[in-house]
Simulated scan of single mutants.
Amino acid sequence: MISLPSHQSKQQQSAPGAAAYLAVQTGTQAEIRRVDSHFVAYLDPVKSEAAARQRLAEIAAEHRAAAHHCYAYRLSAAQGRLIERAADAGEPLHSAGRPILQVLQGRKLQDILLTVVRYFGGTKLGIGGLIRAYSDAAKAVVELAQPVSCLPQVELELCYPYELSGTIHRVLGRYQARIVSIDYGERPRLQAQVELARAEALECELLNATSGKVQLKRT
C-alpha cells in the first residue's frame, strides 16, 4: 500500500445536513501538458480511505517514473460528516493537493478521489504555475465525468428480538432504508443505510413501533 506523504491536510467537518452532492460511478482519465511537464489526472469513485489508498497504490505502480503523485479526496463519513484529505506529494506546500481539492469542493463532488501524476520535464513552473497546472488537470478530468446527484446517507445498527423482525422490516421499508447486512445470532443484528434527512424520524418510529425493544446506534 502507498504511504501518505507528509504534506497533506485532513479535515473532518460537522454534518452538512441533507444537501445533495455529486458522485461518479466510473473512473475517468485526462492528460494535459504545461511547458515540458506532462500531467495525467484520474477521477475515481471511492467509499473509504482504505479504498482511496488502494487506488493511489495502483496509480503509483503504473506511474513509477513520475516525479509526483498528488491527490485529494472527499468522503462521506459516519453521522453525515465529511472527510477531506489533500497531499502535495513532494511539490511545494499547497501547490498541488489544495488546488485539486478546491476543484472537488467547487463541483460538490464527494465519495471521490482525484489524483494528478506529474512527469517533470526539466523546467520549473513556479508556485503559481504549479497551482494553475494542477487545477487545470483536475478540471480537465472532472469535465469528462458524468456525475449523478446523491443525498447524504447514515448507517444504523439495530439489535432486536426475533419476534420484532417483521415490524423492523416494515418500518425500514417505509423510510426507504437499504439493508446492508443481517447477522442472525442470539438476536438479529441488522445494518441499514438511510438518507440523513430521514434518519431521526426513522429512529423515533422504530423505537415507538417496538416499544423501545430495539437497540439503535449510528455507525
Results as ranks from 00 to 15, higher is better:
I168W: 09
G185Q: 13
K108D: 00
S135V: 02
L125F: 03
D136V: 06
V116I: 13
I127H: 09
K108Y: 00
E91N: 13
V117N: 06
L130W: 12
E195G: 00
Q105T: 13
L130F: 02
T167N: 05
K124E: 10
A96R: 05
Q105N: 07
V142Y: 03
L109M: 13
R174K: 15
Q146A: 14
V180S: 08
L156Y: 08
C159N: 06
A137Y: 12
D183T: 02
L109E: 00
P188G: 12
Y119T: 03
Q110G: 11
V141A: 02
E155Q: 02
P147L: 08
Q146C: 09
G121Y: 05
P147F: 06
Q105K: 11
G106E: 14
L109T: 05
K124N: 03
R98Q: 06
Q191R: 15
Q102A: 15
T115G: 01
P99W: 11
L172M: 12
Q193M: 07
G121T: 05
Q102C: 09
V148N: 07
A133P: 03
G97M: 04
Q105R: 14
R170D: 01
A140I: 07
I131N: 03
T167M: 11
L114G: 06
Q193S: 15
R178N: 11
P161F: 10
Q105V: 13
T115Y: 01
E195V: 00
G126Y: 04
L158T: 05
T123Y: 03
Q191K: 04
A197Q: 14
A145R: 07
D111Y: 02
G97W: 02
C150M: 15
L196N: 10
G173I: 03
C159H: 07
I168R: 13
S95P: 00
L101F: 14
S135D: 13
A197L: 01
V103Y: 03
H94V: 01
G106V: 08
I168Q: 07
L190T: 07
E84V: 10
I182P: 02
L104V: 11
A137F: 12
C150Q: 15
D136N: 03
C150F: 14
C159I: 14
R81G: 09
H94K: 13
L158I: 06
I182V: 15
V116E: 01
C150V: 08
L93D: 01
P99D: 11
L101V: 10
Q176V: 04
Q193I: 03
I131T: 14
S165W: 04
V142H: 02
A86Y: 06
Y162L: 01
G121K: 11
Q110E: 13
A87S: 14
V117R: 11
L151F: 07
A86T: 08
A86D: 13
V116W: 10
L164V: 05
